[in-house]
Structures are given as structure tokens and as C-alpha cells.
Design a protein around this nucleic acid. Structure first.
Lengths: 204, 204
DNA sequence: ACCTGAACACCGTTCAAGT
DNA sequence: ACCTGAACACCGTTCAAGT
């Protein structure tokens, strides 16, 4: 991970290194197993070093969650760009990006949507999660441009809830515990299709 | 909480007492803030006492999650009993019970649906969560008795995902952060109605 | 059978001291 | 400006010893 064999006294990129090692550690150990000291160890610094870059372990977790939301937004956008331009196509594609990110980063996804990363106060984390919501909201509204504001809100709730709930339940083994990866993807796609159909039908 | 002023050497109900104090502690401190020692302190025993009743802190958390699923099932059943007997009425009522339980026990709900309570191995926890799924699956199938097995599965996914996803997003402040409790309930009810309608329409 | 107290190896955070 | 090492108050788990 580091270029020189003997580390200099000053790391130089420690904030980045901690975010990188932290992300790996989070996926390996889970939210409860995550420790700041192990994170520092993997970055090759003393356990006290992180304090200069992150006020507390919760700050580091918030940073990981923030980056997670940025990546989630990118995954949704990338998948949408690859799909056809139809409103339902965009909606389904965003959902595929959302689910793929979650499946690839289960612990991070869990952290992002957990109380442990305090989202209440305004800040980068709140902004990053808001950006994901905005992306999704725009896709729903584009699918039902003539609907009332109330219907738009309800369909945004509906689309976001089914998309999020499905992958969340899959990650916990509540859905598709015995399914193959292929079969599970088909179930996810079926869910997204039913979701998009409902949005355009109710919003028409 | 205890009846006698001076505790005897043997507690007698320690397993129960730990589950009770643990549940309160969990809601107060969250999953990451939960500690076995504080739990023992609140139950009035030494920090080493829990070991006799729970092999590890993860075992205690699994017990809390198991009891949570039992209560969740009871909440769903109770709400359904209060509703009219129509298939969609039952489905919506179960959803109301589900969401009310989650809203009243946010940290426990999060624990129940988190990787931290290891659900993989068969056991009381897996059985308790399976019971909730069975309850919900039966309600969906009752609403669409003539549908194919595949449609039934897809609609169960769909109903469970939207119900779970909505309340999960609410608990994280992703949905309805600025809404009053009353407005939020209306949004939840609208979501459950749209969900039930979609189930019967697709399954017809 | 059930609980305590000491012990061990950890942990997060702080802070003087080093570079 | 950034990092270390020691220190502090915690934590989970183990285990001899108590009742």
C-alpha cells in the first residue's frame, strides 16, 4: 500500500490511508468489530495518530459513510447512463446500481443506513445522503411529470422503500437465503420492474 | 426492579434481568454503545455474572433480537386482529403493526436486521425471524390465492421490501425528517395502501 | 448451581514530548 | 503541522475462589 519501505515520521496521506484501511476493516469485522487502533495499525501509524485527522472514531465512521454515499450516487448514475432513456428504464437502472453497490459493500451499506453514523446534524454526511435521495427523486418525478406533488412524494417513498427494503432484507438473509446469485438478481429485477410499473400507473 | 432491598448472593432471575436491562441499554446507547458490563451493572450483578447465562456478548444480543422478533410477530398479529377481515385490510394492518414496533424500538429493530446478530446458523433467532416472514407470507398469499407460485413469491418480496424499507428509511431520517408524527403515519399508511393494491392487482 | 474479584489483553481518548 | 509513547479509564472474557 505504501511506496517506501521505511516510513518517514510524517505519513503525509494519513487521512486517506485511514479511510482506505478503515473501509476494508469495516467489511472484515462489521460495525461492532471496527476499532480505531486496528485501523491505525493497518495504516502503519501509532494508535494516537488518527486523532489529528479525526476527532473521534465516530468521525471516521462518518467519513466512511459519506464516501459510501458518494460512491452510491456514482453507481446509480453510471448504471442509468448505460440504460435506455425511458423513464422506467432509468428508474430500474438506478435501482440496479443501488443494489449492486449494497451487495458489494454490505457492512458499509449498513453503516450508511444506521444510527451509528449520526446524520442529524447538517454536514458532509447529510449532504451526501441527500444527494442520493435527490438523484432518486428526480428519476421518479421524470417518470410521472404530470402527477401532483403529493403523488410524486408518495411514489418517491414507494420506489425508495421497495428498492432499499429489498436489498436490505437480502443482505440480512431474510430474502433469498437459499437462492443462487443469479436467481437473486432475477428476483431483484422483478421487484424493480413491479416498482417502476406501479409508479407510472399511479402517477399517470 | 428488584423486590428485596438487599440482594441475595444468587440472583435467581438473572437471565431475565439481563435481557430487560439489556433492552433498555440498547435503546439508550445504540448497538455500538452497548456493553456487557453496563448491562450487568444495571442488573445489579458483577461484570462476570452474565457469562454463566450467555456465552458471550453476541449471545446476549442474539437473545435480544430473538425476543424482538417474537414481539414483532405479536404486534403484527394484534394489529391484524383489530382490522377488518379483507385480504388487503389484513396486509395493511400487519404493516401497521410492523412499523409501529420499529418506531417504538428503533435500536432493537436495527439490531434484529443487522449482521451483528448472527442469523446464519439455525437456532432460536433464525426460527423467530422465520416466524415473522411466515406471518407476512401467509397474508400475501391469502390476498392472491389464485396466483402462481412465482407471482406469490414476487409479491411477497415486493410487499415485505416496501414495508421494511419505508420504516427503515424513516428511522434513519432519510424519509420524513421534517414531518410531524401524524404526517409520517399518513405517509406510511399511503405506502401500505399502494403496496396492498399492487399485490392484489398483479396477483389477480 | 450460580456469583464474585482479580487478572489479562484489549479498546478510545488525552497529552506531553519528539521531529 | 503532524506523529509517538505513556497514561487513564474503560471493555470482554477467563478462572480460581466463594456461597
Amino acid at each position: 500500500m505504501s511506496r517506501q519501505k521505511s516510513q518517514p515520521y510524517h505519513h503525509g496521506q494519513l487521512r486517506e490511508a485511514l479511510a482506505t484501511s478503515g473501509r476494508t476493516l469495516l467489511e472484515e469485522k462489521g460495525i461492532r468489530g471496527f476499532t480505531l487502533r486496528e485501523c491505525a495499525r493497518r495504516a502503519g501509524v501509532s494508535h494516537a495518530a488518527p486523532a489529528y485527522h479525526f476527532a473521534s472514531i465516530d468521525d471516521l465512521l462518518a467519513e466512511l459513510a459519506t464516501r459510501g454515499f458518494d460512491e452510491l450516487a456514482a453507481a446509480m448514475t453510471a448504471e442509468a447512463a448505460r440504460a435506455d432513456g425511458s423513464a422506467t428504464g432509468q428508474l430500474v437502472a438506478q435501482g440496479i446500481g443501488y443494489m449492486a453497490f449494497a451487495a458489494g459493500n454490505p457492512a458499509l451499506f449498513q453503516l450508511m443506513f444506521s444510527r451509528e453514523a449520526n446524520r442529524l446534524e447538517a454536514g458532509p454526511l447529510a449532504a451526501a445522503s441527500e444527494a442520493v435521495r435527490a438523484l432518486h427523486g428526480a428519476a421518479v418525478e421524470a417518470a410521472i411529470p404530470h402527477a401532483s406533488g403529493e403523488i410524486k412524494q408518495r411514489m418517491t417513498d414507494f420506489a425508495g422503500a421497495s428498492m432499499h427494503g429489498f436489498i436490505a432484507l437480502v443482505l440480512e438473509g431474510e430474502i433469498g437465503g437459499k437462492d443462487s446469485s443469479r436467481a437473486l438478481k432475477a428476483r431483484g429485477l422483478a421487484l424493480l420492474s413491479a416498482m417502476a410499473e406501479t409508479v407510472v400507473r399511479v402517477g399517470a
